[in-house]
Design a protein around this nucleic acid. Structure first.
Length: 564
RNA sequence: GCGGCUGUAGUCUAGUGGUUAGGACUGGAGCUUCCCAAGCUUCAAACCCGGGUUCGAAUCCCGGCAGCCGCACCA
């Protein structure tokens, strides 16, 4: 049977992916996309982008891959991505320092490395494996750190996900969509994680490609307009409290297996996308994260997993991030990252407010009077004690007597309120999807003959063009046809080397769905043969029909339709 | 990061201290060939990197890098 090394060997030999920096020995977790790989990756991106932007009305942005430290403090990555580690001086095992400190301190996470080291030492904590001495506590952060600007500069990090670039642009985005929920934003790009031990080809990379979508929804109404259209479709689910079941999208929401309709809708949407690019539906499922497994920001999370030779592998994570990200960025930036939710009817309310008498405050408090007045306006009248009120101005407590203000009743029309939208995030590991497409397309006959049954839409080359013989002008004719196909926008490849069978084999191995051969009949009547990769059947068509025929096949017309 | 195993053309492999480092497949050029990895001629192409031992290292030793497996970690 096929295993991952067959696929990786094919990828390397035929130019899908290559280990990066190979002449210098390579770097673990880093790969180059070769000519075929990049073409195929771009095809996958195209399909995904169109599904989200044209299909669901999402908007797309593209932000920097490096961000200042504050962004990742706010996002929680500086803390949550960083583990305090100790290792044993004897057996070299590594342990999470905060785990070892459990029970010794009410909140070990809050301690510095020095404090943790001291705590462990004073309590005589030794290696749980062999009882050896432990090293001092060290930080291990999975983010790549850098400096922005010259000299000491500003601390920056390479982004571990593209999502934060969307959250920090929320103000622009909310205005762009004309201040309506729900709305969705996508970003496609690189992310960086300094993995401890990258393995398994391109499954775990240190620099990787992501396609992320962030949906901003009303926390009180997490529905999606087109949910009803798909609620009777099925998905394979592995909930965190039970066994795998196949269930309709609607029922999964009704039974509260999936937290809300938007999450469920995009799980289904993801399933359909993965099928479109060639993932085998029988090797696809959604697995719910365990509570302990959830990221620091997530409240519910389902992974789309595909079965690879490595086992079940996450390719898409669909998380309900709640209000975590926007709330944190509000806290750290003081920006107003909210949505205004209008009431059905404006509400009129009456309330009492303090109205400062500025004409008296001025002479008494001089320069401070403006600030005192402002503070009085903001305070609730119930705080008045014995006619006096005490306020805090620049850290100074000032007591103001009742002669300096009056209490007035005002009527206010409130048309709505500000809410922090919740975020639902389908986050795609592009490299993993790319690899899964290859593995699920890979077939090998008993004699070792390899056919990559890639979906035509993702295949890097759509048509091979060959002359049957390299003489009598067949080659010239074939080269002309090849050029015309390419000029029409379809990737084709001219090949006149070796026997015709060898040329078909070359195309089969890289997943080219169709081959066109110019033979002696072409010279007589202008027809060529077109061959189907998966069936090896051939049909004669007139050369003038080549481009419309290929286009129609690319749109999904079955090859057998040409045989009538 | 720890432990085990491994590293020879693009790929698979022969080579146990002295070889022009051998073969097969692939690839290029040409011949042949009227549709599925055919044949012939010919060409190109390798000892992972760095130290050490030795008169001499692909071969023995050490370190690094990379791969595989296991452990640990995993948003």
């Amino acid at each position: 049977m096929m295993d991952a090394s067959d696929i990786l060997a094919l990828c390397k030999r035929r130019g899908f992916i290559w280990p990066a920096f190979e002449i210098y020995g390579g770097v673990a977790g880093m790969y180059d996309y070769g000519p075929l790989g990049i073409a195929m990756k771009n095809n996958i991106i195209d399909i995904w982008r169109k599904a989200y932007t044209l299909g669901e009305g999402f908007i797309e942005i593209d932000g920097p891959t490096i961000g200042p430290e504050i962004v990742f403090k706010a996002s929680g990555h500086v803390d949550a991505f960083s583990d305090s580690i100790v290792s044993c001086t004897k057996c070299k095992e590594s342990f999470r320092a905060d785990h070892l400190a459990k029970g010794l301190h009410s909140n070990p996470d809050s301690l510095s490395n020095e404090e943790l080291s001291k705590l462990l030492r004073e309590n005589g904590v030794r290696c749980p494996e062999c009882g050896g001495d432990l090293t001092d506590v060290e930080d291990f952060n999975l983010m790549f750190k850098t400096t922005i600007g010259p000299g000491a500069g500003r601390v920056g990090y390479l982004r571990p996900e593209t999502a934060q670039g969307i959250f920090v642009d929320y103000l622009h985005l909310y205005r762009f969509v004309r201040e309506k929920l729900p709305f969705g934003v996508i970003q496609i790009g690189r992310g960086y994680r300094n993995e401890i031990s990258p393995r398994q080809g391109i499954i775990r990379l240190r620099e990787f490609n992501m396609m992320e979508a962030e949906l901003f929804v009303d926390p009180e109404n997490k529905s999606w307009p087109r949910f009803d259209k798909i609620k009777n479709e099925k998905m394979k689910l592995v909930p965190n409290n039970g066994d795998e079941i196949e269930i309709t999208v609607g029922e999964a929401v009704e039974r509260r297996m999936i937290g809300n309709a938007t999450l469920a809708y995009f799980m289904y949407f993801t399933q359909e996308f993965l099928k479109t690019v060639g993932i085998d539906p029988n090797r696809l499922r959604f697995r719910q994260h365990l509570q302990t497994e959830m990221a620091h920001y997530a409240s519910d999370c389902w992974d789309a997993e595909v079965l690879l030779s490595y086992g079940w592998t996450e390719v898409v994570g669909i998380a309900d991030r709640g209000c975590w990200d926007l709330s944190r960025h509000i806290e750290y930036s003081n920006a107003d990252l909210t949505a205004f939710k209008k009431y059905e009817e404006p509400v009129e309310i009456e309330r009492e407010v303090i109205k400062p008498k500025y004409e008296l405050l001025g002479p008494k408090f001089k320069g401070k009077s403006a600030k005192i007045g402002k503070a009085l306006e903001e305070i609730d009248p119930s705080k008045i004690k014995n006619g006096n009120i005490t306020i805090d101005v620049d850290g100074e407590k000032i007591t103001v007597g009742s002669e300096f203000f009056e209490i007035v009743r005002i009527k206010e029309k409130v048309t709505g309120r500000k809410i922090v939208p919740h975020v639902i995030e389908p986050s795609h590991g592009l490299d993993r999807i790319f690899y899964a497409c290859l593995e699920h397309a890979y077939t090998q006959k008993s004699d070792g003959y390899v056919v990559l049954r890639l979906k035509p839409a993702v295949a890097p080359i759509k048509v091979g063009v060959f002359p049957l013989m390299v003489k009598d002008g067949l080659d010239v004719r074939a080269a002309e046809i090849d050029e015309r196909i390419r000029m029409s926008g379809i990737a084709s490849y001219y090949d006149d080397s070796g026997s015709i069978g060898r040329r078909y084999a070359r195309m089969d191995e890289i997943g080219t769905p169709w081959c066109i051969t110019v033979d002696y009949e072409t010279l007589k009547d202008g027809t060529v043969t077109i061959r189907d990769r998966d069936t090896t059947r051939q049909v004669r068509i007139h050369q003038e029909r080549i481009i419309p025929t290929i286009n129609s096949l690319l749109c999904g017309t079955p090859f057998s339709a040409l045989e009538q």
